[in-house]
Design a binder for these strands. Sequence first.
DNA 1: CATGAATGAGCTTTCATTCAT
DNA 2: AATGAATGAAAGCTCATTCAT
Lengths: 210, 210, 210, 210
Amino acid sequence: MSPSRPTSARKRPSQARSQVTVEAILDAAAQVFEARGYAAGTTNRIAARAGVSIGSLYEYFPNKDAIVVALAERELEREREEILELLQGSARDSLAGLLRRFVETVVGFHTRSPALHRILFEEAQHPPETHACVLRFEETLAHALADDLRRRRLRIPDADLAAHLIVQTTESLAHRFVLRGIHELDQVAFVDEVTRLLARYLGARRPSLG
Amino acid sequence: MSPSRPTSARKRPSQARSQVTVEAILDAAAQVFEARGYAAGTTNRIAARAGVSIGSLYEYFPNKDAIVVALAERELEREREEILELLQGSARDSLAGLLRRFVETVVGFHTRSPALHRILFEEAQHPPETHACVLRFEETLAHALADDLRRRRLRIPDADLAAHLIVQTTESLAHRFVLRGIHELDQVAFVDEVTRLLARYLGARRPSLG
Amino acid sequence: MSPSRPTSARKRPSQARSQVTVEAILDAAAQVFEARGYAAGTTNRIAARAGVSIGSLYEYFPNKDAIVVALAERELEREREEILELLQGSARDSLAGLLRRFVETVVGFHTRSPALHRILFEEAQHPPETHACVLRFEETLAHALADDLRRRRLRIPDADLAAHLIVQTTESLAHRFVLRGIHELDQVAFVDEVTRLLARYLGARRPSLG
Amino acid sequence: MSPSRPTSARKRPSQARSQVTVEAILDAAAQVFEARGYAAGTTNRIAARAGVSIGSLYEYFPNKDAIVVALAERELEREREEILELLQGSARDSLAGLLRRFVETVVGFHTRSPALHRILFEEAQHPPETHACVLRFEETLAHALADDLRRRRLRIPDADLAAHLIVQTTESLAHRFVLRGIHELDQVAFVDEVTRLLARYLGARRPSLG
DNA sequence: CATGAATGAGCTTTCATTCAT
DNA sequence: AATGAATGAAAGCTCATTCAT
């Protein structure tokens, strides 16, 4: 009879069920978009893969675009947390070490959920909200990275510019690396070389990689 | 009636006309794809923009996918020629100068025909053949660039790997730069900074840019 | 807490609550149908507007059609009472006076609840039962009016036919008047002219209107 | 080869075929709307009944609403011509004769295409364009009728008002008569009585009906 | 060779209705 | 009794592709 009783961390039954459904839909959407891209990822297929009816899908999302937006927000939020944690815990790491872990982490994002990243960076085909999500995300990363660079007192004329370019380079190379498949370079070699590229950009004379 | 290829000799009137039609269709396709992407670019719109009937379009291309493939081949062929010319004529340029002109040229490709490049790098929305086109194109560039690097006798452990990464970095950053619009960095500053990045990667201590 | 209904006897508390719910649903239905018509008035919206869950709505009505039928019955019952009262109390009125009040009353029905009347006369979009309701209602009116006419000893060959035509004319013109909005004729002028039409039909030489 | 050659009254093959298709769709739409009303008359059913594919239907009409609008325009144009012809040819008829033929004609419109008239007068469920069509049509009729009444030099204070009411009354009664079916009054008796109503309204002492 | 009317599978989305809680 | 998440048939509409002319 008591309409809400947040006894523990559990959600109320109905809410918990809803949340599960929403998550299932987002997971399914990621898989479906991965298989054939955004345009060919139909709402019916997403619903089917999520194990819910098409009606239920539209109970939680007003339209198809809303699904990508939610998917992007969920994923980028997770990634943001992960990266900020990485940067916060790396105050004592060498610059090369930091860069290497940064590259590894970003590559990990793309290999873990290539569907999402393909969609997010294919841009201009889906709602502007997603675009905005990505820009905010990248800005956050760049700011945090710039702060770290400044703390290291490197001789860099413009830390913001450098951080910006590092974020863009890492993201776009990771994106490509995943799109191209693993045929060209294996992942370790790829990460090594990108780290070297970034380390030299920042002026580290002899980046000790690995 | 002699079905000779354009390479040499004369063409029969009808074939010449065909060639004109094909070109018109490809030009129209580039414009239409640019407006809303590959999926939203309908064959009827392409035909209309090209000034031919939809029936004629299918006379020259067996299906929609064949249009993108042809478009990609035509464009990448042009770009390949332009880049190879650049590399051949730059034997006496400084490394920094070469890199700068390389970056400028690639950025130019993307800004000149963003439609095409968006499609080419959006992957997995269009036929795999286009993917193959791009890979061949990038390999050609990487080989030519590696040869150039070797001729310069730099202290680079693996010229092929370096050339490969340079090509990938330049292409992917140029792609992003165009997708994001010019809001973040103006084009000159962007080219400057990417050139600096690549120059340092190759070990140039103080790249005098511009 | 004594939940007895005014008319007779007592009902169980639960039934009184039921009655309130039913009325709330019918009121909500009238409002929702008014906004966009019968087809666009969804059961979910009706339930929401009534402040009950969709499940409760289906507890009281087996399906959507049953709601319109009940709505029609309730409204026409009210109107029937009002009209019969009017006719009963008008034995001493002039014919013209009676007609004027009849027209005014019918126009009032339509302006007061246009939603309902639009639905009732839109026919064939909703269940045949509502049609039957309307026919019964009009027959009742026509009979009562015919009785009145006969009591007045007018020289009318067929009082039933005349009463029938008067009812139909008044209803259908009132319906149209409301559908068209008040742009064409203002309401008073409209009532005046329709009264004149009916008065002359019944042979009144100089109907003194108003 | 000459792109247009209006030799005779014939249309070019392609155009003729188009015209036939358009007419078939409109005819089918009238039938389908008649069967279940506007909302339940689906575009797929219309296409099927017309013997064309759904794609063809959308080749000629941008959306469902456009079909009703076209249907209304086509039908009202036909009716307008017929009524104006009637009024022009009736200068020497008696007033009662004119009214009778007017009523007969309008009733004929409704019995001949009840589907259309049900839709046209159910209003407010379909695009405003149809509404505008009907208003224009009725205005035309009222003007023409008012002119006729003025030419007859009757003692009518406001010929425009009278004509307006006659048009509205005839249209709305004919509409109802058809909706109610033929159960109540047979058509001849109905026309007789409506004519009498209108004749008396206009002051004809002894309307010789029939 | 050129044309463009015709096709129909398949897309996104709505909504009356059910049933486990 | 009351709830509201879930259902899924069916709607309006698009677009790659064909084929009679």
